[in-house]
Simulated scan of single mutants.
Amino acid sequence: MTEPQRLLLVHAHPDDETITTGGTIAHYVRAGAEVTVLTCSLGEEGEVIGETWADLVVDRADQLGGYRILELHRALAALGCNPPRFLGGAGRWRDSGMAGTSAARKPRAFVNADRDEALGALVTVIRELRPQVVVGYDPEGGYGHPDHQQVHSLVTEAVEVCGTEVYPDAGATWEVSKFYWTVTGHDQLQSGLAAIDELPAGWRLPVDGELPSVPESTITTSIDIRGVLDAKREALRAHATQVTVAPSGNEYALSNDIAQPILLDEQYVLVRGEPGGDATGRETDLFAGVLGCASHH
Results as ranks from 00 to 15, higher is better:
Y252D: 02
Y252K: 12
Y252V: 07
Y252R: 13
A253P: 09
A253V: 07
L254H: 03
L254Y: 12
S255M: 01
S255D: 09
S255C: 04
N256Q: 12
N256T: 13
N256Y: 08
N256P: 11
D257Y: 00
D257A: 13
I258W: 14
I258M: 13
I258Y: 09
A259M: 06
A259P: 01
A259Y: 10
A259D: 04
A259I: 11
Q260T: 09
Q260N: 11
Q260W: 04
Q260P: 00
P261V: 06
P261C: 03
P261M: 03
P261Q: 00
I262C: 07
I262E: 08
I262P: 11
L264G: 08
L264K: 01
L264R: 09
L264S: 05
L264Q: 07
L264E: 12
D265G: 07
D265Y: 12
D265L: 02
D265A: 08
D265P: 01
D265R: 15
D265K: 12
E266A: 03
Q267W: 03
Q267D: 13
Q267K: 11
Y268L: 06
Y268Q: 07
V269W: 07
V269K: 08
V269H: 10
V269D: 11
L270Q: 11
L270P: 15
L270D: 14
V271M: 10
V271K: 05
V271G: 11
V271T: 01
V271C: 08
R272Y: 13
R272S: 06
R272T: 08
R272P: 05
R272Q: 05
G273H: 09
G273S: 06
G273M: 05
E274D: 14
P275W: 06
P275S: 12
G276E: 00
G276T: 06
G277Q: 02
G277V: 02
G277C: 07
D278Y: 07
D278H: 06
D278F: 01
D278C: 05
D278G: 14
D278V: 02
A279F: 09
A279D: 15
A279W: 03
A279C: 01
A279S: 13
A279M: 07
T280W: 04
T280Y: 04
G281A: 11
G281Q: 12
G281W: 01
G281C: 00
G281F: 04
R282T: 02
R282L: 13
E283C: 12
E283H: 09
E283F: 03
E283G: 15
E283P: 14
T284Y: 00
T284K: 02
T284V: 05
T284W: 00
T284S: 10
T284F: 01
D285Y: 07
D285T: 02
D285P: 14
L286K: 00
L286C: 03
L286Y: 00
L286S: 13
L286F: 08
A288R: 10
A288I: 01
A288E: 03
A288L: 04
A288H: 09
A288P: 15
G289H: 12
G289I: 02
G289F: 09
V290D: 11
V290F: 04
V290N: 14
L291G: 03
L291T: 13
L291M: 03
